[in-house]
């Protein structure tokens, strides 16, 4: 059984936001109107964490792309009263929207604020109503989050099964990894010792957020800087 994981190389990342845009388009993530976004209700599955340090003009801006970390020991699944979020055998932390009752316990439990809530029915800009038919539209009152583009896994699995072979490294990639112009995002099976993700996750540059929490995130960051 593969275990899907992601490596984000911050030394390569230019903070261009292509991953965040690709993710929004791929997963039909609603675009909040400016007033809602101001009140902290902007919805991102791939969120660009931005911090600015120093005083003008000597400022340093740091940008770190943050998807759901698909923890191996996820705290969000423990608190869900209805089993709408769970960790599947392949290590994906799933969110089943039609089971979700919108209590937002999981959002409170997630140390990385990876989950977002649908405060109102999504409004689509003209021409974007159709969206990606491979991903369902979420309705008001449910929590959603990055799925590692699990709908892509469905079709990859089908093809591999039909051709009677295992899934090859790099065959299943989420939209963010696919769109990254700097190729900073690498995705694959971390239990396959020949995969790029396996190799990169053993780099001396590797770090994970929330290492002290014991939740075992499956998104690894690479950076030469000691603190990110």
């Amino acid at each position: 059984m593969p275990k899907w994981a992601m490596v984000i190389d911050l030394d390569k990342c230019t903070g261009c936001d292509a991953c965040a845009v690709a993710c929004k388009m791929e997963n039909n993530v609603p675009i909040a109107d400016p007033a809602e976004a101001q009140s902290g209700r902007a919805m991102f599955w791939m969120d660009m964490m931005t911090t600015t340090e120093g005083a003008f003009p000597n400022t340093v801006t740091k940008r770190v792309p943050k998807p759901c970390f698909h923890c191996d020991d996820p705290p969000c699944t423990l608190v869900c009263p209805v089993g709408a979020t769970y960790r599947n055998p392949e290590g994906l932390v799933a969110q089943i929207y039609h089971r979700c009752i919108g209590c937002r316990y999981c959002m409170a439990a997630c140390p990385f604020t990876a989950k977002v809530y649908n405060w109102y029915d999504p409004k689509w800009i003209d021409g974007a109503e159709v969206g990606n038919p491979d991903v369902s539209r979420r309705m008001v009152g449910v929590v959603e989050k990055c799925s590692f583009c699990s709908h892509r896994l469905m079709s990859v699995k089908e093809t591999a099964h039909r051709e009677d072979r295992p899934i090859m490294d790099g065959e299943y990639v989420p939209a963010c990894a696919e769109s990254c112009p700097a190729e900073a995002i690498v995705f694959g099976d971390i239990e396959n010792e020949e995969s790029r993700v396996y190799r990169l996750s053993r780099s001396y540059r590797v770090m994970r957020y929330g290492e002290d929490l014991g939740v075992k995130p499956k998104v690894y960051y690479l950076s030469r800087r000691t603190e990110t």
Binding site: Y86, A94, I96, D134, S136, L153
Partner: peptide, 8 residues
């Protein structure tokens, strides 16, 4: 019967 096998 994994949810993710059919739900998206």
């Amino acid at each position: 019967n994994d949810c993710l096998a059919c739900h998206r």
